[in-house]
């Protein structure tokens, strides 16, 4: 069978991120390019973090989804340009917030200094929007998230780190 590029993108957009199912792998920004030649499809993907254990699962899901449509699939892992949270749209970030994860701010290069003091002010709680929050740990349940606590609504929450 043959298929259009747009149809492939649409199919990929229905695959949820295995760790954050509120958004799709396309919204996450890991699908970089789709090439279609007849019934062969090449999907370029880039990892969020180099050691992200969900990467293999995302690749497998992409292959499974497209193979079920009778397509011949190849996944290419590309490292350049490096994935950044800036590729997530505002709508995607709002989905994260609604899911209970404080979304990333825009990446600034000052953030890339290990001892940089953030000038962005406190992080807002995704539940009650209070700014009375505190960092619990730089590392959360996945490599891409940090742990916070809201002193107002007394809820722990995760923050998708700027990356």
């Amino acid at each position: 069978m043959t298929i259009s590029k747009e149809a492939v993108w649409e199919m990929l957009n229905s695959i949820p991120d295995p760790e954050v199912p509120a958004i799709s792998i396309v919204e996450l920004g890991v699908v970089r390019d789709v090439k279609v030649e007849g019934s062969s499809v090449i999907v370029d993907m880039t990892p969020t973090y180099t050691g992200c254990p969900a990467m293999k699962m995302m690749e497998d899901q992409v292959k499974a989804k497209l193979m079920l449509e009778g397509l011949d699939v190849k996944v290419n892992v590309v490292f350049k340009p490096a994935w950044t949270t800036d590729w997530m749209s505002d709508a995607t970030k709002e989905k994260l917030r609604a899911y209970g994860i404080a979304p990333p701010d825009k990446l600034s290069f000052e953030n890339l200094h290990p001892f940089a003091k953030s000038d962005k002010g406190p992080l807002k709680c995704p539940f009650c929007r209070s700014e009375n929050t505190a960092l619990t740990s730089q590392f959360g349940s996945t490599a891409c998230k940090a742990l916070y606590f809201c002193n107002e609504c007394r809820q722990p929450f995760e923050h998708f780190k700027c990356h």
């Binding site: 180099t50 350049k80 490096a82």
Partner: peptide, 22 residues
């Protein structure tokens, strides 16, 4: 190109390591 690509990825991770361990 490969070195620069991998490095652009790795530096963000390592920045966190320096910060956390520091």
């Amino acid at each position: 190109e490969t070195i620069s690509g991998l490095s652009a990825k790795a530096i963000k991770e390592v920045t966190y390591h320096v910060r956390h361990c520091g």
